[in-house]
């Protein structure tokens, strides 16, 4: 059974006349890593809010269809209950951090689940270590850089041990090295702990090769879903105007994908392909 199921989902914000999402259908299997992308304003953030029930439970608006996460129909359960199954990481971490220290911030979720003190402590330690911020535990989130704050937000969610993480451009405010380390953390969480990932990201060159499937939203509709190489090498993807990775552009420009039947997504896989093919 899929862990996330979106059935004929359409949604219009209160006060708006135009739907933001139109007839979206998507099933995600447990342990999948989904990359969700599409032009700005296409409805990616709105779809994320539907996945943890913020829409429609907190936003109102006109909601049609059904979203089921980890067996819970989102319209039938409160957000706090869904939040134990789906962790949502936003673009702007400073909007969600509010405790006086990093440690307290990360402990907040598990403490609210009334877990034993030892378990809370263990989860805090693990989560801080997973994103590499154990040394920041006593700092106030306010005095951290944007990148560090985002790591705190992710650690705070990890402490809830959700089965699904939905991340809305989590690396947008990070410098490249920290972005890479956060993305590597996500990959590790997915591969080793089986956490289902739904990652919204524009910089496809950094993430395309990590995902099992890539989904493209355009004007509120899910227009392409498939293996990242199939999606990113398609003419439709090019027409929508998402940032096709340079490696894909080079490969396509020279017809290497047609000649070899291979669709590399990273520089090293293209280089390997050329090396093998040349000999």
């Amino acid at each position: 059974m899929p862990i996330v199921e979106i059935r004929s989902l359409s949604y219009t914000y209160p006060g708006s006349t135009k739907p933001t999402l139109t007839n979206v259908n998507l099933s995600v299997e447990e342990g999948e890593f989904i990359l969700l992308t599409g032009p700005s304003g296409c409805g990616k953030t709105t779809l994320c809010r539907c996945l943890n029930g913020l829409i429609p439970n907190s936003y109102g608006g006109e909601f049609n269809g059904q979203v089921i996460v980890d067996g819970l129909v989102t319209t039938e359960h409160p957000v706090y209950e869904i939040a134990q199954h789906v962790g949502l990481v936003f673009q702007n971490p400073e909007n969600e951090l509010f405790c006086t220290s990093v440690e307290r911030e990360v402990a907040f979720g598990p403490e609210n689940l009334a877990l034993p003190r030892e378990e809370v402590r263990k989860r805090v330690e693990e989560s801080l270590a997973m994103v590499g911020i154990s040394h920041l535990r006593d700092k106030s989130p306010e005095e951290l850089s944007g990148g560090e704050q985002q790591k705190v937000a992710i650690a705070a969610l990890l402490a809830m041990k959700p089965k699904i993480l939905v991340l809305d451009e989590p690396t947008a405010n990070l410098d490249p090295a920290s972005a890479q380390s956060v993305l590597n953390t996500l990959l590790k969480l997915n591969e080793e702990s089986g956490v289902t990932m739904i990652l919204v990201e524009h910089r496809l060159e950094m993430v395309a090769h990590m995902a099992h499937r890539c989904a493209i939203l355009n004007e509120g509709r899910l227009v392409l879903v498939g293996k990242p190489e199939d999606v990113l090498y398609s003419d439709e993807a090019e027409a929508i105007g998402i940032g096709i990775p340079k490696v894909v552009q080079v490969t396509k420009a020279l017809g290497i994908n047609k000649m070899t039947g291979k669709c590399p997504l990273t520089s090293w896989s293209l280089a390997d392909l050329l090396r093998v093919w040349k000999n």
Binding site: P176, K246, V247, S267
Partner: peptide, 30 residues
């Protein structure tokens, strides 16, 4: 602590000398 542009990575992986940040140059080298 900067991550190189993808074309520069590709230049290095293909041992292009000199490496480049220009799409057209990579295409003609490949």
């Amino acid at each position: 602590s900067l991550i190189p542009p993808q074309l520069v990575e590709l230049s290095w992986d293909l041992a292009l000398n000199p490496p480049t940040i220009h799409f057209d140059e990579i295409v003609s080298s490949v």
